[in-house]
Simulated scan of single mutants.
Amino acid sequence: MSAISLPATIRVFERGWLSSNNILFTGPGPATLVDSGYLIHAAQTLALVEHVLGERPLERLINTHLHSDHCGGNAALQARYGCRTLIPVAEADKVRAWDEAALSFQATGQQCERFGFDGTLAPGDPLEMGGMHWQVLGAPGHDPHSLIFYCPAEAILISADALWQHGFGVIFPELEGQSGFAEARATLALIDALDVRLVIPGHGAPFTDVKPALARAFSRLDFLQADPVRNAENAIKVMLKFLLLERQQFALDALPAMFAHNPVIESARRRYLDKTPAELAAWAVQSLVRAGVARRDGGQLVNHDL
């Protein structure tokens, strides 16, 4: 971060992997937060925002997409500030009805307290944040309805989970037999066509090596698309690690049932993986242990961070 030059009106709270980064615009114009982190970190999100804003209210909250690690703090921020909330237009009916089956929370086994919204954003909309003009762009792939935000004057891209410095988010639609690889490739091509000097990703530090990051992302996408089993296996490891980050430990003998009852994991297993739920759980546990990001302790799988 020390070598990255951000406009004075932008503050980035780098949150790690369980919670997405939060991007706070302090003015001119309404104080605005892009993405709110995961539910169990909502108090931390509030504290970070309050530390910067002081007595000034947060007037607007915007979500790039509605995965739980990007919108889990929405309800807490709304309760504290009564902030105007904008979400991707394609998610409006689901949020209005609070349909957790249509939203991603139930399918991924993750938490999100119910929140409302005041307006929507769609690709092509203009947006002003921090005294800068931004373009709202569609970024399907990781999530069909994800948005990214581009400021041409500053050559800054808020990329959500469409592009990280070393990859991108899981291509979830492919796990359920829907198209996702082609959309992710088109999103990367869209980013490649922009004049971008600085990317603020959904996870990880802001970065300026944009072309190398895109090359890594295209290579990663080629690798996954060549054999969709790789995408399925990666997704299952990611979802188990997310669970461990949230709970810190999990009973090993409970994992097969949890896998069997998780719609995303079960769909991926039936479609791509020649394993029973018990075999898949054992494989996932071994994969995390081998990678050094979890350990066995008696009958428990325990989180371990490198």
Rank of each mutant, 00 (worst) to 15 (best):
A189E: 15
T187C: 01
D195Y: 08
G169K: 01
A184E: 13
H133G: 14
L175T: 05
P173N: 11
A186C: 11
H142T: 15
G167D: 09
A184R: 13
D125I: 07
G124Y: 08
E154W: 05
V136H: 07
V196G: 01
A153P: 06
Q111G: 12
A189T: 12
L190C: 02
W134G: 06
I158R: 03
G116E: 07
H166S: 14
A193L: 03
A139W: 02
F115M: 05
G167A: 13
A160V: 12
G138R: 12
L127T: 03
G130C: 06
L194F: 01
D192C: 04
G169D: 09
A122E: 14
D143M: 11
G180Q: 05
P144Q: 06
Y150N: 04
G177L: 10
C112Y: 01
G177F: 07
E128L: 13
L175E: 12
E174S: 13
L121F: 12
L194Q: 03
P123I: 14
A162E: 09
D143E: 12
A155Y: 03
A122Y: 09
D118E: 14
L121K: 10
I148S: 00
D125K: 08
Y150I: 04
G167H: 09
E183K: 12
S159Q: 10
Q178C: 15
H133D: 15
Q178A: 15
A182M: 06
A184S: 12
P144H: 06
L137P: 00
P152V: 02
A139G: 02
W164N: 09
D195M: 08
L157Y: 00
P152A: 07
V196D: 00
I171A: 06
E128C: 13
G177D: 10
G169M: 03
A139F: 06
G167Y: 10
P123Y: 08
G180F: 04
D125W: 09
H145A: 15
Y150M: 01
Q165H: 11
F117R: 05
E176Q: 15
L163V: 04
L163G: 04
T187R: 00
I158H: 10
A186K: 11
H145L: 15
I148A: 04
T120H: 05
